[in-house]
Amino acid sequence: MDEIIRLDNVTKVYDGGTQALGGVTLSLKDEWTTIVGPSGSGKTTLLNVIGCLDTPTTGTVHIAGKTVTGVNKAELTKLRRKHIGLVFQQYHLVPYLTALENVMLAQYYYGTTDEAKVVNALKNVGLGHRLDHLPAHLSGGEQQRVCIARALINEPTILLADEPTGNLDQTNGQAVLELIQNLREAGHAIVLVTHNQDIVKLGDRTIRIVDGTVAWDSALGGGDHGEQ
């Protein structure tokens, strides 16, 4: 497996002095990595840094072989477009755009729009019959599937998912997890943040973050399997 993401001694200190990451060193491959840890431990900050949504205070980040530390915001945006797909707990669909348009929006920013490809992507997540529906007319599970279709439409190198089933009932949660499993089998690198121990078991690797540092990494072995 190839190294997709590498973090060397990454720290993140927010304005006001709060330290969210305190020297994280990680190497992630094209597999399903699950990040766990208590609330406020720095999981989301880690995801932001990996997703080029935020920059570290110190340390270096490499995404798909490129060093992203020190590049300007415009370059970060380009990297994000090309390499990162994001799945959010709150779905974050644009409320006045249909399911089809929400997915096409990501294509638009990427620079090309291909409606047939979007229709196909939505069919693949089981929403071929919901193309023209606004988010308000979709269930939570359906909205999350639109979010996954949007994250994947530009064929990113890495899929970052922040509690993707956190707002879903068991049936819908299961459907979303099946989609993610399919993506792993298709060769996508997945980094998923969750509190759910059942989801942890589905991943290839688990990393536990506590107080902004890596407390346990299943790839390195250890005893607690990332329990919180």
Binding site: G51, L53, K73, A74, T77, K78, R80, R81, L86, H92, V94, L105, A106, Y109, Y110, R150, A151, N154
Partner: peptide
Amino acid sequence: RREIGLMKSIGADNRS
């Protein structure tokens, strides 16, 4: 703000 943040997160640059 969230909508703007979302657009940026999925690839919108400042110009967009």
